[in-house]
Design a protein around this nucleic acid. Sequence first.
DNA 1: GAGTGTGAAGTAATTCACAGCG
DNA 2: CGCTGTGAATTACTTCACACTC
Lengths: 214, 214
Amino acid sequence: MPASLHKVSDSAIRRLSIYLRVLGGLEREGKETVSSQVLADRAGTTAAQVRKDLSLFGSFGKRGLGYLVTTLRDELRGILGVSRTWRVALVGIGRMGAALLEYPHFRARGFEFVAVYDSDPEKVGSRRGMLTVEDARVLEESLRETGVEIVVLTVPAGAAQEVADAAVRAGVRGIMNFAPVALKVPPGVRVNAVRLTVELEVLSFSLGSVADRD
Amino acid sequence: MPASLHKVSDSAIRRLSIYLRVLGGLEREGKETVSSQVLADRAGTTAAQVRKDLSLFGSFGKRGLGYLVTTLRDELRGILGVSRTWRVALVGIGRMGAALLEYPHFRARGFEFVAVYDSDPEKVGSRRGMLTVEDARVLEESLRETGVEIVVLTVPAGAAQEVADAAVRAGVRGIMNFAPVALKVPPGVRVNAVRLTVELEVLSFSLGSVADRD
DNA sequence: GAGTGTGAAGTAATTCACAGCG
DNA sequence: CGCTGTGAATTACTTCACACTC
């Protein structure tokens, strides 16, 4: 039962994205087919989990054989919505913003930065690769004009909510938030937070508690 | 039932780290107490979840009043293991590595970079703030000598596993991995992967499927 | 035979709801 | 009274196990 309209868990989607990455590697290695077991090993999960995840969207495998690498990759691209290009804007061009702007894997996966904003007058007007830094004061209308669909937020915590509000008013429905605040957005808008300090603190906790395996 | 030796879920720990961040903000605002409800609002979760999470480690609140901000913050620091300083090394100083090295929130939370490595001869020997970039070939012994406890990996995918192996041999038990590969490490070593492309693809999926609320 | 697809079983995480305390 | 702490109920996620297909 393919079920494309049923609710799929976030963690399942995360894993699909990882499978997609693994399939790219397998393809480069010239592999034509792959079993759920091998896929699982490379993705860091279990074979049953792989099959369950894929079965949420269809029956892509061949029994006794496994999955066709290229076919499955195309299917996953379709499911994840990355067979097209997404128009992305960066707001806040500090060191982290600059690093993301040049991050090679984004473009390779269809996420293209089409605008950059900052509120620092020193930075506004300067070039960043193909792009010119625009003034954050014109954010809303500029985002709308440029047809931006996803915003990557690397501004200080204090500025994040107002930038998010402006982006939402401009019709943006996806926000990748690096600022250390929980953003409030209306229904229909999706925020994905990247919490670098949290990741380190999870490590710190694991190393601290002795009762720890794996 | 405090239960410090029982298994606590990863997501609970992640939330504790977020609560800690929120408490810092409340403290700066001069708030002395906070209810689970307010904490939840600022952290982006529910009051029941906050109380459940905290109850895994003790009874920190006062009924009818809430939690004392400073006290709870200290408790959480102890639980997460961040009342001390952690010695961290960065391996791979591209743009992302450079951004992390200067990321102000790491140091503010007790994560201190004490060494930087790269394999590029052009970079080896150059200065990065207080640190000199060392040659990745001496990684293992240098990590050991420097007493590094956590490694942040920002090397290309192809190099990540061998760097991880060397780090593990050097006694490192925590790895924050930015490379797009699943690292294999022995039991007792904890890897935390930061998958930036996955985060964007989750957004892409959410925007793509129309059947989407929140 | 090898390996998928999937209900059913088993775990884990979250939410409810309320007794009990300050 | 207000708000915590927590068992109980619920919901979500993962693993099992095996019929089925290539």
